[in-house]
Nucleic acid binder design. Structure first.
Lengths: 195, 195
DNA sequence: TCACTTCTTGGTTGATCATTCAAGTAAACA
DNA sequence: TGTTTACTTGAATGATCAACCAAGAAGTGA
């Protein structure tokens, strides 16, 4: 049943796309409305402001993390470390598909949105936390193969930081190389940890 | 001689500050002009557009890297690995000084500026390259303490990616913890490499 | 049928955006 | 002194910004 999405859904879909492509400030209401095919009156029927739409978008990312990012990666690999790198491989593909224009939509918003906007940053942090949680699951499965006393949460956070940093560099260099070199070092880190 | 800075210098100084605090799109010409105490006519006497100002700002970062970031860190530590972590400690201090609002100004622009704007991204990449070069110097001094076949450039790139990722997370979490945990893992990486 | 809610239409608001311009001042040089 | 160059002044431009609103359509339940 390919039911036509409601105006509200189309607004959120368009905002997801445009905030990722042009950023929050770089997306005008006019851009958004014409992309979604919705009139401004309808927009303000569903959302009280552009900022409220941002929050709604960040909430949909929360639900999209597992089906769109984590589960496809977990389906491609069984071994815990390979699952982590399968997630990262997903980001590599997105970089290639977008000719290095890709930036993680969350990372972009994390740096763009005013830090005073705590609701938005709370949601971004929640998204990051979900991502860290998925990596943490893999790390936990390594059991005692890791050195005693390894801070597993910190290690999972580290994986996220490396990914975000790698994506950022690839965007400016216009090449996937910095991402690849960064991920290769992370692989070496895991190799050393498990040696 | 505390000579009054010229209008051009004041414009660049203000732009450095405002682009860092509010981003490029988030800084209006009106904000900029009033912050610098300059009229719009003077601005367009020195710069052909807001975008030209962005390029000028990115060029000043190029010159500021060593005196502002690298040399103070190198002065605090002699040992190569400690010098790398002294650079990172500088970023930690900036996070604390700004109550976690701090994001690396280059990282912010790297994710914000349209990838089609190659001149700007070229300058950002040049800045990153300078940073990587400084870390690379330290790594080179480690000589044969590193495992044979270590990709030294990739390792230096990795340090930058970890820093940028850590700064990003701290901004959204509103806490220096993610940065600290991330840097601690990087330290572990160097410990394992040199073991 | 009528009343009520939900959603859509699209024109309008006033603020703010980057940029332009004609007229001016001030110092340097002839 | 007259002329040139470098810079400043600040009002004006038209485009675009997020947000608002009154009117109406479509659907639901009584």
């Amino acid at each position: 049943m390919p039911k036509t999405p409601s105006s509200r859904d189309r607004l959120i879909d368009s905002a997801r796309y445009l905030f990722w492509e042009r950023g929050y400030a770089g997306t005008s209401m006019a851009d958004l409305l014409s992309h979604a095919g919705v009139n401004s009156g309808s927009f303000y029927h569903f959302f009280e402001s552009k900022e409220a739409l941002l929050r709604a978008v960040l909430e949909t990312y929360l639900g999209a993390l597992r089906p769109m990012i984590v589960e496809p990666a977990f389906a491609r690999a069984q071994e815990p470390v390979e699952r982590i790198f399968a997630i990262l491989e997903g980001y590599r593909e997105r970089i290639l598909q977008t000719e290095c224009k890709y930036g993680c939509p969350l990372g972009r918003l994390a740096l763009e949105i005013d830090p005073e906007n705590r609701p938005a940053h709370g949601l971004i942090a929640e998204n990051f936390q979900g991502w860290i949680g998925a990596v943490r699951e893999c790390i936990d499965q390594l059991q005692d193969r890791l050195p005693a006393g390894t801070d597993r949460d910190a290690l999972a956070t580290y994986v996220l930081a490396v990914m975000e940093g790698g994506v950022m560099l690839s965007r400016s260099y216009g090449s996937v190389d910095p991402f690849d070199r960064t991920i290769a070092q992370l692989r070496e880190h895991f190799r050393l940890l498990l040696a």
